[in-house]
Nucleic acid binder design. Structure first.
Length: 598
RNA sequence: GGGCGCGUGGUGCAGCGGUCAGCACACCGGCCUGUCAAGCCGGAGGUCGCGGGUUCGAACCCCGUCGCGCCCGCCA
């Protein structure tokens, strides 16, 4: 290889050395008598100086260089004069005086300029993803992701975990998310499914005596996309035998702490050991099961306050068993009517009927949409409950409990943003525990598994399976940070009688259980050890580490919100012969047929 | 499936019923020996996403449609 150094690695220590660099022309500045070319490679950017006195030939070639041309440059590293140091570049103290340059490949003018500050639209970036990925920020993200995965592998290896690959073509078990299906040519009319996660397989590995397993596992879910959801994504999947909740939590907390210190040392973990919140407490205090604990602004129950007022709207909600809760926004009494209307528009979008507000004026006087109802005792109770002080704004929402929590939880994040309380350099991890095992499915009139059907109930709640399923708590835990759910897992059921009872409650008949999970149930009859595990949403973890607003920024080739890969054009139609081999016929709805031709 | 926003030279935006559709950057040519978002001079480049409608007249208003983003539903 002719390259001797990476462009971005050159430092004063290299001064005087003759180096050969390889990379892309980032930018060039032609001054007529001297030409500066910023040469970019994976490691960074260095300034190359073309001077006719150094090499007439190289100078002539440099005159023709354009952005993104690929070149070899040979020259001597020299210290820059002090007044010409560029503090914006890591290599800014040196420059390379070019003695020879070879053009390896010319580039067409790229559709957008390759640099971090550029405001190219995401659509264009995704179409030319290979150019987008040349941007230093994107390379930083991919490198961060690499270092994260590498650290995890080494860390788990050192603690006796084996990395085991599980199949991508598996059996469809239509619980939970919609499966991606793959037709079988050898078994006409039958289909594989792509794994939503290696859940069942890792449990079977525990039955197999593997004891400690992990995998950086690609997972697939055919559901609509979001900023934090792609149809294919990556989990750090983990399972351990002979463990309880504390064991899994302990290993993962230690891994996360070490990982943060290794790959994002500039970030401060707010609290170690990670605080733990019950699911109920999280919803109660933060209106979310993945609260952002970097700031307070906790939800306050104001039912008892409004109960003693004449405000019919809130009293009616309370009479129907609903809630009235509020958030104290410190200092926001300065908000104009327009700004509050803006917030009201948001909460309506989230499903609230309206937003009530009260400002505490400097004199202690209350002002606002519902202030006139807060007299005497109610006024005192309001101030006592909210702890509101002059200059504060209290925002309130009334309605059904879950809705109030959800709306105020979102409003809390909005206020956190507006008040600048979400410091990106702080990681506020927390474990959310004591999840309900089931949640009531209104539409189907039955219980659904909140986590998945193999999640173990808490030992002390076993009796309630018969009497009060809604009160049964699960041996389940989520790891959250800064408002994101980063991981979730549970201890699994290993007792046949308990599993049977759970299937009963989930309205899964023995026949259906046999059909769907027969292999699991049978396996559990051959000496299944107690076991449990967890899965990290690796894309989200890296996204948070990288301070990116969505996981597309930490995935090399992501898909758009409609599941399209703009670079390759996937998904696409296929040859009729391919379909015929698979015994598949495409039947489009009538209206789509009419417009399907481009 | 539903709601909201956006779509205008290569890129990012302005224009939101009436001269020839502007600006910045990029691009092309010229000048220039210390720039690093180089500078100066000159130039080229647009059927305003697509289709239909309203109007004397549409980038602009209306309807439909496509694409992208955000949100709801969905995501055990």
């Amino acid at each position: 290889m002719r390259r001797t150094h990476m462009a971005g690695e050159l430092r004063p220590a290299h001064a005087g050395q003759r180096v050969t660099l390889a990379g892309w022309v980032h930018r060039s500045r032609d001054h007529g008598g001297v030409i500066f070319v910023d040469l970019r490679d994976r490691a960074g950017i260095v300034q190359v100086v073309f001077h006719p006195q150094t090499s007439e030939e190289a100078f002539r070639i440099a005159e023709t260089l354009r952005a993104e041309d690929v070149v070899y440059v040979t020259g001597t590293v020299q210290m820059r004069p002090p007044e010409m140091v560029n503090p914006k570049l890591a290599t800014g103290e040196v420059e390379v005086f070019a003695e020879a340059v070879e053009v390896l490949n010319r580039s067409r003018t790229p559709p957008f300029v390759i640099r971090d500050e550029v405001a190219a639209g995401e659509e264009l970036r995704l179409k030319y993803r290979y150019l987008d990925l040349r941007r230093p920020r994107m390379q930083r993200n991919l490198h961060l992701r690499h270092r994260t995965v590498k650290f995890i592998r080494d860390w788990l290896d050192a603690r006796g975990f084996w990395e085991i690959e599980t199949p991508i073509l598996i059996k469809s078990t239509p619980e939970g998310a919609r499966d991606f299906l793959v037709p079988s040519r050898l078994q006409p009319g039958k289909f594989y499914a792509l794994p939503q996660s290696p859940q069942q397989l890792k449990q079977l590995l525990m039955v197999a005596g593997i004891d400690r397993y992990f995998q950086i596992a690609r997972c697939f879910r055919d559901e609509d996309l979001r900023g934090d959801r792609q149809p294919e994504f990556t989990q750090l999947d983990m399972e351990m035998a002979f463990v309880d909740e504390e064991d899994v939590i302990g290993v993962n907390e230690a891994l996360m702490v070490d990982l943060v210190r290794a790959v994002v040392p500039h970030k401060r973990i707010q609290q170690v050991p990670f605080p733990r919140l019950s699911y109920a407490e999280a919803l109660e205090r933060y209106g979310s099961d993945k609260p952002d604990l970097r700031f307070g602004l906790e939800l306050v129950d104001l039912g008892h306050v409004w109960h003693q007022t004449d405000f019919r709207v809130f009293r009616a909600v309370l009479a129907e068993g609903g809630q009235v809760k509020g958030i104290r926004a410190p200092g926001l009494a300065r908000y104009s009517r327009k700004q509050i209307d803006e917030l009201e528009k948001l909460v309506r979008q989230w499903g609230a009927h309206g937003l009530a507000w009260v400002k505490v004026q400097e004199g202690g006087e209350l002002q606002g949409s519902v202030a006139r109802f807060l007299a005497d005792g109610a006024r005192a109770a309001f101030l006592e409950a909210t702890q509101a002080e002059p200059g504060d704004l209290v925002l309130m929402v009334a309605g059904e409990g879950a809705l109030v929590a959800d709306v105020l939880g979102r409003l809390r994040l909005e206020l956190g943003d507006r008040l600048g309380l979400r410091d990106p350099d702080v990681l506020a991890f927390a474990w959310i525990v004591d999840f309900p095992l089931f949640e009531w499915n209104e539409d189907e009139g039955r219980w659904d598994a909140m986590h998945h059907p193999f999640t173990s109930p808490k030992d002390e709640d076993l009796e309630r399976l018969e009497t009060d399923p809604g009160q049964v708590r699960a041996k389940a835990y989520d790891l959250v940070a800064n408002g994101w759910e980063l991981a979730g897992g549970s201890i699994r059921i290993h007792r046949r009688d308990v599993q049977q009872k759970v299937f009963e409650l989930l309205n899964i008949s023995p026949e259906r259980a046999q059909e769907r999970f027969g292999h699991m149930l049978e396996a559990f009859e051959y000496g299944a050890p107690p076991h449990g595990g967890i899965a990290w949403g690796l894309d989200r973890v890296v996204m948070v580490f990288a301070d990116e607003p969505n996981i597309r920024e930490v995935i090399a080739f992501p898909k758009t919100a409609s599941g399209v890969d703009l670079m390759t054009g996937a998904p696409s139609e296929v040859d009729p012969e391919q379909l015929a081999e698979l015994y598949i016929r495409v039947v489009l709805p009538e209206e789509e047929k009419a417009t399907s031709e481009p």
